[in-house]
Amino acid sequence: MKKLTVFMMAFLILAGCSQGNQAEEKKQEPKQEDVTLKVASLIPPMTEILDEIKPQLAEEGVKLETVVLSDNVQPNTALAAKEVDANFFQHVPYMEEFNRKNNAELVSITPVYFANYGLYSKKFKSAEELPEGATVAIANDVSNIDRSLSLLAQHDVIKLKEKKDVYYTQKDIEENPKNLQFKEVDLLMLARAYDDTDAVLMTPAYAAPLGLTPKSDALLTEGTENDFAISLVAREDNKDSEAIQKLSKAINSPEVRKFLKEKYDETAIPAFK
Rank of each mutant, 00 (worst) to 15 (best):
V6M: 08
F7H: 10
M8Y: 14
M9V: 14
A10V: 15
I13P: 10
N21G: 06
N21A: 15
E24S: 15
E24P: 08
E29K: 15
E29G: 05
Q32W: 08
E33A: 04
S41N: 00
T47Y: 08
E52C: 14
I53Y: 11
I53F: 07
K54F: 04
K54R: 13
P55M: 15
E60C: 07
V62G: 06
K63D: 04
L64P: 01
E65C: 07
V67R: 01
V67C: 05
V68I: 14
L69T: 11
S70A: 01
N72G: 13
L79Q: 03
L79E: 07
L79T: 00
K82L: 00
D85M: 02
F88V: 02
Q90I: 00
Y94T: 12
R100T: 03
K101G: 05
A104P: 09
L106I: 13
S108P: 15
S108Q: 09
I109N: 05
I109W: 01
T110V: 12
P111D: 03
V112S: 08
F114R: 09
G118N: 06
G118H: 07
L119N: 08
L119M: 01
S121E: 00
S121T: 04
K122F: 04
S126E: 03
A127N: 06
A127E: 10
E128S: 10
E129D: 14
E129C: 10
A134V: 02
A137H: 01
I145A: 01
D146L: 02
L151T: 07
L152K: 08
L160T: 00
K163N: 07
K163C: 11
K164D: 09
I173K: 04
N176H: 12
P177A: 14
K178V: 12
F182K: 03
K183S: 06
V185G: 09
V185L: 13
L187C: 01
Y194F: 13
D195L: 05
D196E: 15
T197V: 09
L201Q: 05
Y206A: 05
L212V: 04
L212Y: 10
T213D: 05
T213V: 11
D217S: 12
D217C: 03
A218G: 03
L220W: 03
T221F: 01
T221L: 09
E225H: 08
N226I: 13
D227Q: 14
A229Y: 11
K239A: 01
D240S: 06
S241V: 05
K249A: 03
A250C: 04
P254T: 11
E255K: 12
E255D: 06
V256F: 06
K263H: 06
A268C: 06
